[in-house]
Simulated assay, not measured.
Amino acid sequence: MNSANVSIQVLPNVPEEKLYPVVDKVIEYIDSTGVKYEVGPMETTMEGDLNLLLDIVKKSQEICIKEGAARVCSVIKIDYKAEGVTMDEKIYKYR
């Protein structure tokens, strides 16, 4: 499958002082997968095989729960086209 972009914003239901540490665990996991990604102030965008990225989304939810969230709501955005899509084609002119 060609490259897709998936953005994830996790919103774990934890006390405020635990919010960033839980989100950091998710970002650490994303980093460990080897996919291309960029962290933004509101979400993290990944690039790669859509099935792999959706597995990462699922695992990200599980990480939040494991780290103490009673519940996690997430915002997911997917950009997919048959010939593939890259982050660079979208943002190269802003770099």
Score class of each variant (00 low, 15 high):
residue 32 S to F: 07
residue 25 K to H: 01
residue 94 Y to I: 10
residue 13 N to P: 00
residue 55 D to N: 15
residue 46 M to N: 02
residue 37 Y to F: 13
residue 5 N to D: 00
residue 8 I to G: 02
residue 71 R to P: 00
residue 50 L to D: 05
residue 61 Q to K: 05
residue 1 M to L: 08
residue 35 V to A: 03
residue 95 R to K: 14
residue 11 L to S: 11
residue 76 I to P: 01
residue 2 N to G: 14
residue 87 M to R: 14
residue 84 G to W: 11
residue 52 L to G: 01
residue 43 E to L: 04
residue 85 V to A: 05
residue 46 M to A: 05
residue 44 T to C: 06
residue 83 E to L: 06
residue 84 G to Q: 11
residue 33 T to Y: 12
residue 71 R to M: 14
residue 13 N to D: 14
residue 70 A to W: 00
residue 81 K to S: 07
residue 10 V to A: 09
residue 35 V to M: 05
residue 72 V to E: 03
residue 32 S to A: 09
residue 8 I to H: 03
residue 40 G to A: 12
residue 83 E to D: 14
residue 49 D to L: 08
residue 56 I to A: 08
residue 77 K to Y: 04
residue 82 A to P: 05
residue 47 E to W: 03
residue 43 E to Y: 05
residue 8 I to R: 02
residue 88 D to H: 11
residue 72 V to D: 02
residue 33 T to M: 09
residue 93 K to H: 10
residue 66 K to N: 15
residue 36 K to L: 10
residue 64 C to I: 12
residue 91 I to N: 06
residue 27 I to W: 02
residue 4 A to N: 02
residue 67 E to S: 10
residue 32 S to P: 06
residue 31 D to S: 15
residue 42 M to F: 13
residue 16 E to T: 13
residue 26 V to P: 10
residue 63 I to W: 07
residue 46 M to D: 01
residue 90 K to A: 09
residue 9 Q to G: 05
residue 4 A to D: 01
residue 79 D to K: 08
residue 38 E to N: 14
residue 48 G to S: 06
residue 75 V to L: 14
residue 72 V to K: 02
residue 27 I to Y: 04
residue 72 V to Q: 05
residue 42 M to H: 01
residue 77 K to D: 03
residue 92 Y to N: 13
residue 24 D to T: 13
residue 75 V to N: 14
residue 41 P to N: 04
residue 37 Y to G: 07
residue 65 I to E: 06
residue 17 E to C: 00
residue 33 T to A: 11
residue 78 I to S: 07
residue 82 A to Q: 14
residue 44 T to S: 09
residue 69 A to C: 05
residue 45 T to R: 02
residue 95 R to V: 11
residue 67 E to T: 04
residue 55 D to M: 07
residue 53 L to I: 11
residue 80 Y to S: 13
residue 31 D to F: 09
residue 1 M to A: 15
